[in-house]
């Protein structure tokens, strides 16, 4: 237990991070920044899991395990996403979402 810091503080931080991530995903124009927003969302989930595990269920380790897996999967997801973004750059000479608009409604 971390002295003097209640669980709510962690949850508030993670909630703010989650919605900052969603906001960034919607408003940002650069594909790499959009990817960074997704990492923010995933990390807010990690904070949630670790805080819940540490404060509420210190007897088991499910939350910690889940966090480790999320980190690993997020890394592989970022790797594939960056590979595809490089491919986008080859075709469009830009990674701005406003230029990547060959298909639209």
């Amino acid at each position: 237990m971390i002295a003097g810091i209640p669980l709510e503080y962690f949850l508030i931080v993670s909630t703010i991070m989650f919605f900052v991530g969603i906001y960034g995903f919607i408003t940002r124009k650069n594909l790499i920044t959009i990817l960074m927003s997704i990492e923010l969302i995933l990390n807010s989930v990690n904070i949630n899991f670790v805080a819940f595990n540490k404060y509420l269920y210190p007897d088991n380790l499910h939350g910690h395990f889940f966090t480790l897996f999320i980190i690993a999967v997020a890394a592989s997801e970022a790797a594939v996403a960056i590979a595809i973004i490089i491919n986008i750059y080859r075709h469009y000479s830009s990674i701005d979402v406003e230029n990547v608009e060959k298909m639209k409604y």
Binding site: F25, I34, L42, A81, I88, V100
Partner: peptide, 17 residues
């Protein structure tokens, strides 16, 4: 390429949610 980037970004967001 455009389909790939749209799929990976939106599916990553949905996994996050």
């Amino acid at each position: 390429a455009e389909a790939g980037v749209k799929l990976i970004l939106s599916s990553a967001l949905s996994s996050g949610i």
